[in-house]
Design a protein around this nucleic acid. Structure first.
Lengths: 186, 186
DNA sequence: ACGGTTGTTGATTGATCGTTCAAACAAGTG
DNA sequence: CACTTGTTTGAACGATCAATCAACAACCGT
């Protein structure tokens, strides 16, 4: 039921959902009081399923904490390619699409982002002394999300993964500089 | 006529446009064959007006090419604050909102991004030797856009400019590292 | 067998959307 | 003044949307 939000967004009609789910309008409205509650349900499922749905698949055998970050980004790359550059992070798309979101919806979007950056931050913590002392790991984790979302956006607009790849390359460069700065501090 | 796309997005109804512009449906359709052509008109105006509308206001007295970049980002910051974190780059919002855009529309979005990154790239060129030799300036310019769009997205989702500020801070850190690497090469 | 609860059905509703068009109007031209 | 040309008007249309609801089926304990 969650996957339908990937291809379409909030403007996917109820009728679309019905045909996809083989349901009738009445049944759907028996479970969800309104269309927005469907969205809330999906966002909650996303929030609670990030570990199994997103992180574990991407991190299969990767051990190095910093490589985990780029393995996750590579997972997005795969989705971009497989969707012919149509893919957009569902959370990011919704965040920009809904201009006056219900507080509950906005909170859920924020929670989804938070979970994501928290996962990155854990990687950064695990990287320990490879990063310079005093590094703001929370800010850096958010910066990774920033790079991902911006890269996805540009790749989709130009219909060219290379835009995403360049964003990742730049981020790698940033990490390389950080790691170098960590070894040669003063 | 262009400003209406800032507060609303593509899902602003024709009726909204009519009441805002004091026009009648007939008059509008006399000028624009369809709603999409209105969008195209706005995107073209954006594309052609980036210099006067965006760059010049932000760059008033700033001379330093790298500071120009951050002056531009600070312009976005102002808009975020003034709109109570409701602001979203119109191009970015549209890029993620339109899932199956008309080729013409998509091209215009891409052109708008291109103009923006080209302007940044000119700053990077002007920065000359302050950046390490061999720096991919095109990729770096796109990375600045990436940071901006991602920062805007997160600020809006969390309703907190601090998320944008942190993205900018991280980008500054990146530039600082690059400048340091430029002076101490081998 | 039966009343009660729960879940399902799909036609229907009213609102809103983008778009159209015949008629009215304005402005020139000879 | 008549006539042509171009613009404006706003009611109306069909499509589609989210949401409703009376009727109906399936299951339960008793």
């Amino acid at each position: 039921m969650e996957l339908f939000w990937l291809k379409g967004y909030n403007s996917t009609s109820i009728a679309d959902l019905l045909s996809r789910t083989q349901l009738n309008s009445g049944s759907l409205y028996h479970v969800f009081p309104s269309k927005q509650d469907v969205l809330i349900g999906v966002l909650e499922a996303y929030r609670d399923g990030i570990e199994e749905m997103l992180l574990e698949p991407a991190w299969g055998q990767v051990e190095d904490p910093i490589e985990k970050i780029f393995a996750l980004l590579n997972g997005y790359r795969t989705m971009i390619v497989e969707s012919d550059c149509t893919y957009g992070c569902p959370i990011g798309s919704l965040a920009l699409e809904l201009h006056e979101p219900d507080p509950k919806v906005r909170d859920l979007l924020a929670e989804n982002f938070q979970n994501w950056t928290n996962a990155i931050e854990r990687c950064l913590d695990a990287a320990g002394k490879r990063l310079p002392r005093g590094t703001d790991k929370k800010a850096l984790a958010q910066f990774v999300l920033t790079a991902m979302e911006g890269g996805v956006m540009q790749a989709r607009t130009h219909l060219d993964v290379a835009y995403f790849d360049r964003a990742v390359t730049q981020l790698r460069e940033h990490f390389a500089l950080l790691e170098k700065a960590a070894t040669a501090p003063a």
